[in-house]
Amino acid sequence: MGENDVIVETRNLVKIYGDGAQVRALNGVNMRVVRGEFISVMGPSGSGKSTLLNMIGALDRPTSGQVLVNGQDLGEVRDLDGFRARTVGFVFQLHNLIPTLTARENVEVPMVGQPVGRAERRRRAEELLALVGLADRMDHLPAQLSGGERQRVAIARALANRPSLVLADEPTGDLDSRSGAEIIQLMRRLNRELGTTFILVTHDPAVARQTERVLVMKDGRIVREHHVGTPFEEDLKAFRDSGLGQAILAGDDVARDLLTPEEYEVLLRLLRRIAQ
């Protein structure tokens, strides 16, 4: 894992709100996100998770510390609007679509002001809406869409400028559990298909469980980090911890005897990946 693969890094990030009665929303956060990851930030309200997201998305400036995105220190970026337009996509809890614009026009909004032609804008918006399964809802106004559909439009909008990073603040907070699950699945699929990094902020453990890695925040700090696996990975871990798994990893003769050389190589590679 080289330095190039780190898409987000924070160094001793501190954010203090207010002049008189100060609130330390972030109290020294250090984290790294690898390109292509699908992670979540969890914690009770007031723990600083949304603030962290705002810092990464350059919506707000830190009091001290650094945020690096794609190796670039955001404190040194002059055109933050341009940075937001090109590098990150936002998905909010309330879909926050513009009520007067149709689904397609809402997806086009981030491309306005970017060097994208009108026709290309339209084509791309249609392509993205098709990608999120709303090919037949392009010309509907937000009021004519269901909650889940609106959030899909919001996701399509977040992807408009092909960002390398999507930040989602409680994307399922306003949805029922079924639509919520569908939205997470959609984001997971897009993460795999497009390779876009996703950082989700949530307080719902069910949502967090569906991500690869969970950062748990409390009082402005990251206090724990879980690696959550898929069921397949869980099984693989169990296998690794079994006698045979340990034997394969250790290169025991027992294992070599039981398996063909090809099988041995495949299993060893798998176990090494999971072991780190």
């Binding site: 998305g57 919506l59 609007d81 341009g82 940075f83 937001r84 337009a85 090109r86 936002f90 909010f92 926050n96 513009i98 909004v109 981030p110 306005v112 002001g113 970017q114 909008r157 400028n161």
Partner: peptide
């Protein structure tokens, strides 16, 4: 929202 999506002032 528009500002978050990268619209300039």
């Amino acid at each position: 929202v528009l500002r978050a999506l990268g619209w300039r002032r």
